[in-house]
Design a protein around this nucleic acid. Structure first.
Lengths: 214, 214
DNA sequence: ATTCTTGTGTCAATTCATTGACATTATTTT
DNA sequence: AAAATAATGTCAATGAATTGACACAAGAAT
């Protein structure tokens, strides 16, 4: 059943479905049709049905989709029924911001450790988690069953830290450094290149302004 | 010449080209072929040529591309030759992190104001920019020629703040709130949904783990 | 000056993603 | 209980994005 590879285009849309379904659930909505959902989310109903069907039919003809059931199923697909242990490397502003962001805990992403090379930050606590020196990373990852590392360090050190992590069995890296990591296949990397995102916005701003002046 | 619409798929790749070309420039590399660049960036040479040609031929047959020239041209396309005035709304951890991030200034994105509803934060300065109360947003946007607003506030208030911004002539919103904004057409929105990104990582982690256990 | 090499720009082919259409099945109404 | 309605799952058609192939131009070598 779960044989053929699901395209990343589909995966990229799942969190958004998940968000809308969560809201609907909280509002007490019990069922929804692809048509209604499509109007809400501003995508085609066809795409919604096609997307869900990649995972094998969550709906019922003539009825639609049960909101709570669908919400849970998508959560499972996204691995949100499991807990994940994560560490944050780089306890600067961004690292602290992510560390303080409670919502991740709610989804099963548990912050287990923080690391920074600055001795000023070491010892400081973020939500009860002390910032440790970088030297501790290797043993900490091995001994605490860490599966996700969040990289919020400058690009110069990111590449080598990623290598250390890879050598110590990390399974996934959430990379905020402005550099492409070159890790062995099998280690998942998700990049958040903020400046890329801002440049995209800048392009669209520019283009629209030009278009107006024609 | 600049008539046909460029697809967002292409735009999304430009910042990455820009980054690699900047690095090459700093290393003193003068020219590069699509073939060499493709090996470096791990994309096809065909895609690189196709992408650049959307903007009308930056290269020379038999020679390749001049790194510095290409770097500058892509910068122009992305609007990085202009300066942009931005404000950050929400001076919590994430807002402060973005405010403190100097690199944006280097690219012409100048932080002009910060706002927060918390009276505790008001008056505090981030890189010399004081945090102001939310009531000031409207007049500040109008009087200071602000074109980009960064939203780092909870989703409950994001929607209404976006409306206020739209009514006061903002041109672009960089949205970190976990909600889809519904702004009039013509206002550019770039979403950074961090939790979506983390969920994608979680899915890929999950999927790969399962695949291994087969 | 002529030949050879390199490597772009571009067209065509292919692959991937999205949309549209509809047969089929469950639910609701009469 | 039968007819009518609603809405999925899926197949086919379309559209978009990526890759491959190659003619041709610029530069290097002889």
């Amino acid at each position: 059943m779960e044989e053929k590879e699901i395209s990343q285009a589909v995966i990229g849309r799942l969190p958004r479905y998940f968000r809308y379904l969560g809201d609907l659930k909280d509002e007490g909505v019990e069922r929804i049709s692809s048509q209604e959902l499509s109007e809400l989310m501003k995508v085609t109903a066809s795409q919604i049905r096609q997307d869900f069907n990649n995972f094998g039919g969550f709906g019922q003809q003539g009825y639609g989709y049960n909101v709570e059931f669908l919400y849970k199923e998508i959560g499972k697909i996204l691995g949100l029924d499991k807990t994940h242990h994560l560490i944050i490397i780089g306890a600067g502003n961004l690292g602290q911001a992510l560390g303080n962001y409670m919502n991740f805990e709610k989804r099963g992403f548990l912050l287990k450790g923080m690391f920074d090379k600055s001795t000023e930050l070491q010892g400081k606590e973020i939500r009860g988690i002390p910032v440790q020196p970088m030297e501790n990373i290797e043993s900490f990852v091995r001994e605490n069953n860490i599966d996700i590392a969040v990289l919020t360090i400058p690009k110069t050190s990111a590449v080598e830290v990623a290598e250390v992590l890879a050598n110590n069995g990390i399974k996934a890296i959430w990379n905020f450094a402005h550099v492409d990591l070159n890790v062995p296949e099998g280690i998942q990397v998700e990049n958040v290149h903020l400046s890329d995102s801002l440049m995209k916005l800048s392009y669209n701003l520019e283009r629209y302004t030009k278009e107006q002046n024609k």
